[in-house]
Structures are given as structure tokens and as C-alpha cells.
């Protein structure tokens, strides 16, 4: 099952572990989901490494290990592949920041894994929360 990963889940995982981190770890074992994210996500992430290091108080080496782990579990998709959905996504997204995720989800007709309440409220059918993803990973709910 394909899922578009909103990076707010990744940052939550880096901040508090818990459910957002478990969705990556359990999927590493069970492989029920195929995680994808828009291209340049890692470029943006790398650009902010200093800030992430300052907030987390983790060393550069530790941070790099964490980011490598996330990168090994989420495949990025080039803008070229889904930019034909940009216009439709811009009309449906509750906020500008959500447009690439919505466009990618529209392109692949799949859901977005996010903890963003605004996105969840506006696009209920297109969103899955970390808690819901965990239920699927542990067999408590059907995909």
C-alpha cells in the first residue's frame, strides 16, 4: 500500500519518537507500506540540519544516522512525475505547504500519512494518521 509521507511525521518522530517513529520501525519489519515523498525533500532537510541539530542537541553524526534511516525507508518522487496534478492540488489543499503532498496523493490515488490537523479536516478521505497506520501495521485495522 502506497503512502505519501508528510515530513511533519518525520520531525515528530525525531522530536518524541512514539507513534510517528514506530510507523517507520514497524514498517521496516513488516513492509506493509511503500512510503513516498516529493523530490527535494531531503535537500530541504539537509539545508536545515544545523537547526535540527541545535533543537535536538544531537551530534551531527547521530543526526546523520537518523536521517539516513528515514531516507532508507522513504522513496522520493521527482516533480516531473506529478506536476500535472499541481493545479488540482492547489485548489484542494488547505494551505500552500500541503500542495506537493496532495498532488502526489492525487497522482498515485493514495493517502497521505500526516499529523497535520488542517489537512486531516479538509481531506479526510485522503489522510491517514500515524495512529491509524500503526493499527494497520499491527493488524488491528484493515488497510
Amino acid at each position: 500500500m502506497l503512502l505519501v509521507v508528510d515530513f511533519n511525521v518525520v520531525f515528530s518522530a525525531l522530536a518524541k519518537g512514539g507513534k510517528p517513529l514506530l510507523v517507520f520501525e514497524l514498517n521496516d519489519v513488516f513492509g506493509k507500506f511503500e512510503y513516498v515523498s516529493p523530490d527535494y525533500m531531503y535537500t530541504e532537510l539537509d539545508k536545515n540540519q544545523d537547526k535540527i541539530a541545535r533543537f535536538s542537541k544531537l551530534s551531527k553524526a547521530e543526526l546523520s544516522e537518523l536521517l539516513d534511516y528515514i531516507k532508507s525507508t522513504v522513496r522520493t518522487v521527482s516533480f516531473e512525475e506529478f506536476k500535472d496534478k499541481a493545479q488540482e492540488a492547489a485548489g484542494k489543499s488547505p494551505h500552500m505547504k500541503d500542495v506537493p503532498y496532495v498532488a502526489l496523493a492525487l497522482k498515485y490515488d493514495c493517502k497521505i500519512l500526516t499529523g497535520d490537523l488542517g489537512l486531516k479536516e479538509k481531506l479526510k478521505e485522503r489522510v491517514i494518521t500515524p495512529a491509524q497506520a500503526l493499527d494497520i501495521l499491527t493488524g488491528k485495522a484493515e488497510p
Binding site: F11, L14, F55, S56, K57
Partner: peptide, 24 residues
Amino acid sequence: IVARSRMTQKQAEGLAREVNCSLS
């Protein structure tokens, strides 16, 4: 490693917003 992270949820949300805006 994550257990040693001192990032707060608020900081995580702010960073995610910043990165997502730039990407968008």
C-alpha cells in the same frame, strides 16, 4: 538516538512547516 533528542513538539512542528513551505 531519538531518546536523547531534546527537540520539542512545537519546534518539530515549526521546522516541518518551514521545510514544507520551502518545498511547496
